[in-house]
Design a protein around this nucleic acid. Sequence first.
DNA 1: CGAGACCTTGATTGTCATCAATACTCGTGG
DNA 2: CCACGAGTATTGATGACAATCAAGGTCTCG
Lengths: 231, 231
Amino acid sequence: MNAPIVCDTCPVADRAVCSALSPEDRGELARIGHHRRYVRGETIIAAGDSATVCATLTRGAAKMSTIDRDGTERIVALVHPAGMLGQLFASTATLHVTALTDSEACLFPASRVAALSDARPALARRLPDEVSRELDESRALIDLISKRQAKGRVAALILAFARAASPAPCHDAESFELPLTRGEMAQLLGLTIETVSRTLTALETAGLIARRGSHGIAIRDRAALDDLAAG
Amino acid sequence: MNAPIVCDTCPVADRAVCSALSPEDRGELARIGHHRRYVRGETIIAAGDSATVCATLTRGAAKMSTIDRDGTERIVALVHPAGMLGQLFASTATLHVTALTDSEACLFPASRVAALSDARPALARRLPDEVSRELDESRALIDLISKRQAKGRVAALILAFARAASPAPCHDAESFELPLTRGEMAQLLGLTIETVSRTLTALETAGLIARRGSHGIAIRDRAALDDLAAG
DNA sequence: CGAGACCTTGATTGTCATCAATACTCGTGG
DNA sequence: CCACGAGTATTGATGACAATCAAGGTCTCG
């Protein structure tokens, strides 16, 4: 299950944190971590782990979430390839990290990354960037939830995944798979399963999107979606 | 308006980022920044500033927000004393930072903080902590918004400020001032002004809180509030 | 094939947004 | 000191939207 890290074939070598490092330093980092595959739904990092681990997602999609005492899950972040998983600077993990689709990640013990970053200024300077990128993303999530209407929230979610699904950062994917179940979308958007479902069919009948199966989405009227998402 | 920084009388010297530093290092940091007062509503950092500044709030309360192209403001973070303002690791500020009440803050040019942190490992190690604390807070904000019912959101907001208003971290303040207008609360919670107002009167008539003026709050039934906020 | 999870659709209810009017607060100037 | 006005808050009536309750459909996997 665990494999050594091979950067040469890494699809996100140019975008992930590692890109800040010289080839030698990257080799050193690669040696302290390992690479692993996950199936949809598998836990990558469990909340409560004291030996904290952080990771770079190389393929797939993941969510970070909290579980309240009453048992409801709350998604606080979505992670796409090249993004960082886990809480690098926390002493104990407070969040669950779960694979949303079949995924791959490079895992590193947080303590050893911290040690390496003390010795390698290039890494030390890059890590806070990464955290503040996470911060921006979590603010984007706030954006997502604070839309008034269900249509706006769903439209914004679709666009967010269109952006993430595209390999090129400049333009979005035309058609892609939503890696979330209706329940997860509902929870993320602060809606119910039924409302999400109804809203998707409404967007489809209005001609803004087309669906292929229960998770396949194709964007038909980009402008109209932008419009809804802006509200 | 601008004054030198005097750490000896600083009310948050034990909790702010600076607490990680030795007296000499703290002195050095103090010399590159300055201290300033703000009145309610005043802009502390404007989005778009290229010369980025970061700050530690020493008294009062502040909000960080974005302005969409359509002109609506969106609050992405609340900051309480000892908290950090601004985006330390961004090259351009993307957020407005505004004083919610009369406040005081120590301002530092971001570039010089970064330079100092290269030379002072203690600071370098503390800064990411601070950013990840911000991250946790912004996730707490997500928590706030994703409650289903208006009562729950308002209750959670009240408790958040009760926590922040208390000088001691262990227990909350019993009575305090909400430093937000109804409009700001509404916006923050994804509700309307009217709903916020109605909800507050409902909480009052139900005996969970008492009000003194339009912003004064006293907590009467802590358990019931917790209960609502959990939903 | 059957079981379970997931999704869709319908009918009804409840909550919150909207529209509208009135009151409160505070600062300014007569 | 009082009158005025702008900004802010409360309260009411109404309607739209989403939650809830309920049932049936689809997909997947053993």
